[in-house]
Nucleic acid binder design. Sequence first.
DNA 1: GCGACTGTTGACTT
DNA 2: CAAGTCAACAGTCG
Length: 261
Amino acid sequence: MPELPEAEANRRRIKGQCLNRTIEDAALGDNVTYIELPGDNERGRLVGRQFTETHRHGKLIFAGSQSGPWICVHLGMTGKLLPFDSPDEPPDHTKFLIRFEGDRRLAFRCPRKLGWVRVIDSPDEEIERIGFGPDALEISEEKFAGVIGTTNGTIKGALMAQKKLAGIGNLWSDEILFQTGVHPETTASDLTDSQLSQMFATMRDVLTGVCETGADYSQLPRTWLIADRRAGADCPRCDGSIVKSKVAGRSAFHCDSHQQA
DNA sequence: GCGACTGTTGACTT
DNA sequence: CAAGTCAACAGTCG
């Protein structure tokens, strides 16, 4: 579950179920080669501490406290943070497991091992270190227009560039462009002020809308692309049809009628 | 069984 | 700066 709304749904689970409980243990799961996870010393730093607050920036999820330490989690393609209670067993493909006092547990499930977990001192420092741009739900319209409108590459690539704008990936970039009526290969710097303004509003609508459902796509309006995001599907907004292409190295889906190049 | 997908990013080359 | 390719991984689908 990898973009901003999915990260937000995972953050909320931690906030709801894993705060203010003393950590008794932090352990690695099975088969953890090739995946970045905290080492012995870093895991040891968590023991005896509590998470008292959470934070999210783009696709990154944080849990920690003012005095630290924090965990910083990236979900990759298939990562998920799953709180549960003993004696239930952790899910398959659990790579990192925190045991809180009492029965509460937090599992990081990550079958494809493209996600990671770090123990850090400060979310802001980590965001700075990685070099992420502003969070897509915190950026102002002016800064959005400045950052996106000056990119010489494709608009789809610009929306997905985490160092410009953090939080949007393949799926929701397609949705935003679909709803704004802009072709994914449009050169970003060719967009008009009006198009950028409309795209900013649509971006917020899409991201907040998905967040409100807890990233349950079945609850999203039928007029969105998401349910028909496959080659040959009828466009849910006009009499066009959905075509698949490759833009910025990713599979892109758009309507051949209301998203003209 | 094989090959080609897949919501991620990073390194590297053009 | 940006695009394209390859790489990392494992599950799923045809």
